[in-house]
Design a protein around this nucleic acid. Sequence first.
DNA 1: TGTCAATTGTCAGCGGCTGTCACTAGCCTC
DNA 2: GAGGCTAGTGACAGCCGCTGACAATTGACA
Lengths: 208, 208
Amino acid sequence: METLRERKKQRTREALLRSALELFTTQGYEQTTVDEIAEAVDVSQRTFFRYFAGKEEAALALTEMTVARFVEAVRARPPHEAPMEALRQAVLEGWYSINEVVESVAPIELYLRMCRVIESTPVLLAAHLRRSVEIEETIAQVLAEREGLDVDADPRPRVAVAVFSSVMRVTERQWSLGEDFSLEAIRALTSRYLDQVGPALLGNWRTA
Amino acid sequence: METLRERKKQRTREALLRSALELFTTQGYEQTTVDEIAEAVDVSQRTFFRYFAGKEEAALALTEMTVARFVEAVRARPPHEAPMEALRQAVLEGWYSINEVVESVAPIELYLRMCRVIESTPVLLAAHLRRSVEIEETIAQVLAEREGLDVDADPRPRVAVAVFSSVMRVTERQWSLGEDFSLEAIRALTSRYLDQVGPALLGNWRTA
DNA sequence: TGTCAATTGTCAGCGGCTGTCACTAGCCTC
DNA sequence: GAGGCTAGTGACAGCCGCTGACAATTGACA
């Protein structure tokens, strides 16, 4: 059982996060000031910065949760699976279990709307991409360990992860630009784009 | 022949850029204030912002020049080349001609040092990555046109470009973390990592 | 040389973010 | 259950990136 203090803290954090997401998705990220968020929860601006390192961190908090889940999923894949297949399965798992990951903080619908805000707000997209390369490094190490390789000696783990996550990026982007914002849509796109990695590398597209 | 005004403007811009790069690479990006840069050139802070949209833009200016060159190189590749091969050749061309691109503004050595500052400064790395995905979109369209495809109907152009540029990212990073900061080193890494794309996708690394 | 337009400096101000310090409220002990 | 202790908060001051507005300066061109 948590202490009252801890419960209060958690409630404040979640209130701040919810208000922030609500404001970001309705009036836009840049248009929302930290003062506004703090005021909505009736705390001082200073308090906001005690819970989040910056406005960005609040905006990316949900994504961060799903990413953590993805990393765990990769770790949990059976070791006999080929590396790329493990990644593919982990991502698809992620899209299926996203509901239970996010719903404790916000409805999935808010999550999906926030994804599009991130994609369409330059500074957020930049932060998101940067975070992604950090994750890539983590995943590369996981893969290397799985396969009993040295990440620094063998380029394959990093290359494979880079290839994989770049395709995920394209997928995200196409999803956010499309008209179907459902989870089914993103799952379908994921498979479709991953299947194109092979063909995209083949010599001449015109003869295919 | 340019007018005096234009020459003066250009000189101011270059002076600002040079001072900025010099300060960034010596004392770090975050530690350098815009006031400092402006003062070094003896102009007002306001003037700095008339030449650069922000501190970031100054920091990424050199990179931007080389990127523009790369895009041109891709456009100029002979149409019979396979897509991935065209990209590979364009990048290698870029590394060979980088000297003449950059030297009008700063010595290559400064460029290389700045690359590492970008790689090691979170906010700069983020901006750099964001810019990269913009370029990816451009390149994807170039490729699609070359091959007579519709970018939105066929996933291959975007997937191929994403794969390619993610490998370039890994290369950059490894180069900036390594000990050999020469151009030869980055050329060698480029080829080495690109050659690993195929093997990295193959099923089982343990048997290879 | 005088007029016009482009460039610049100055000033005021906003928003993100941080350090400091005093104050409050939950916790824990006697 | 009264006391001290400490985590959490609010209030304030201040830095830095960045912008708008307006006045002053400087090159262009007749």
